[in-house]
């Protein structure tokens, strides 16, 4: 186990939602020995255990704000995220997970960076990644490498 976790989140059979998984796949070999690179399609609270024991975490995920053109890359820090409560515990996400980790005094990453890519289509099962999001993948990889 290295000290850094690189986690690509997303569902690779749901069009642009795959972006985090695709980035993680590209970085896996290059980061070998320096970071643990994994990808998955789990939701916030089920992810919690994955982070325990790492000093820092870099998360790559899809985001749908509807306010930016597809392919826009946003960088967020854990502390930048509003502590929000989802309308139901079913939909709890990263901010709630971070708060829980803090309350439980878990051995959680001190540094938590998130690279989020604005998506175009996240609904088509088996749908391809749209051109704008595919074009953003090399840039996301560079951004992740730059902070490694």
């Amino acid at each position: 186990m290295t000290k850094t976790l690189v986690l690509g989140l997303g569902n690779e059979i749901l069009a642009d939602d795959a972006v985090g998984v695709l980035v993680a796949r590209q970085l896996k070999d290059e980061f070998a020995g320096r970071a643990d690179v994994i990808s998955c399609a789990l939701h916030g609270l089920a992810l919690l255990e994955l982070f325990i024991g790492y000093e820092r975490a870099i998360l790559i995920d899809a985001i749908q704000t509807g306010k930016n053109p597809p392919g826009t890359i946003m960088e967020l820090r854990g502390e930048d995220l509003d502590k929000v409560y989802a309308p139901s515990p079913h939909y709890a996400g990263v901010p709630e997970m971070l708060e829980l980790a803090e309350q439980l005094e878990l051995d959680f990453p001190k540094e938590f960076r998130i690279f989020a890519v604005e998506v175009g289509d996240m609904r088509t099962i088996g749908g391809p990644v749209t051109a704008a999001v595919a074009a953003a993948i090399p840039a996301v990889c560079e951004r992740v490498k730059a902070v490694m």
């Binding site: 989802a86 079913h90 998506v119």
Partner: peptide, 22 residues
């Protein structure tokens, strides 16, 4: 919400991206 949460209807495939406006 209470009425349907008891069944825990599965929205799993819709829960793993960062929340935008939700």
């Amino acid at each position: 919400e209470m009425a349907f949460r008891a069944y825990d209807p599965c929205h799993g495939c819709a829960t793993h991206a960062l929340p935008g406006d939700m």
